Computed example of a mutant assay.
Amino acid sequence: MLNYWAENQNWAKLTPWLGSITIVMLFLTFSPVDTMFWALINIPLYLFHQTEEHYWPGGFKDYFNRVVNGLPEGDEALTDEKVFWINIILVWLAFLIFGLLCIVNIGFGLLIVIFSLMNCATHIFTGIKYREWNPGLVMASLQFLASVYGAYVITAKGISHPMTWWISSVLFLILVHAILFKFVMGKK
Rank of each mutant, 00 (worst) to 15 (best):
L142M: 12
L171N: 01
G158I: 11
G99Q: 03
L90K: 01
I154E: 12
S168K: 03
H161D: 12
V91G: 01
L100K: 14
L96Y: 02
M25H: 03
T51H: 09
M25Q: 07
E7L: 08
I174H: 05
F98C: 10
L142F: 15
S20L: 15
S168R: 03
W166Y: 12
D75M: 08
N8L: 10
W165M: 08
F84A: 01
G59I: 12
I154R: 06
W17A: 15
E52A: 07
P72T: 11
I88V: 15
S168E: 05
L142Y: 09
G99E: 04
I128G: 02
G99P: 02
H49A: 07
V113K: 04
L171A: 14
M163D: 06
W166D: 13
I103D: 01
W165K: 05
A77R: 14
T35M: 05
T29E: 08
L100D: 10
P72I: 11
W56M: 14
C102K: 00
Y149A: 04
I167A: 03
L100S: 14
S160V: 09
M36H: 02
V113S: 11
L18W: 07
N3E: 06
F108I: 10
I97Y: 06
L100C: 11
V138L: 15
L90A: 09
L93G: 10
A121P: 03
G150H: 03
N69S: 03
K129H: 11
G58Y: 12
I41M: 05
V104F: 14
A140E: 04
F64K: 10
V153Y: 04
I154N: 10
S116L: 04
L71G: 01
L78G: 06
D62M: 10
N8P: 03
M118C: 04
G58H: 14
I174M: 11
I154S: 11
F98G: 00
L26G: 05
P16N: 08
A12R: 03
H123W: 13
S141G: 15
I43A: 01
S168P: 02
E81Y: 03
M118Q: 06
F95T: 05
T51G: 08
L175M: 09
E73L: 11
L173H: 12
W38V: 00
P162V: 05
F172D: 00
G59N: 14
A140R: 02
W92I: 04
F172G: 00
S147Q: 04
V176A: 15
G59M: 11
F125P: 05
D62H: 13
G99V: 04
K13V: 13
W92A: 10
F108R: 05
V33A: 03
L175K: 01
M1L: 10
G107Y: 09
N3K: 07
N119T: 13
F95R: 01
W11P: 03
F48P: 07
F95C: 07
G158T: 09
M36T: 14
E73M: 07
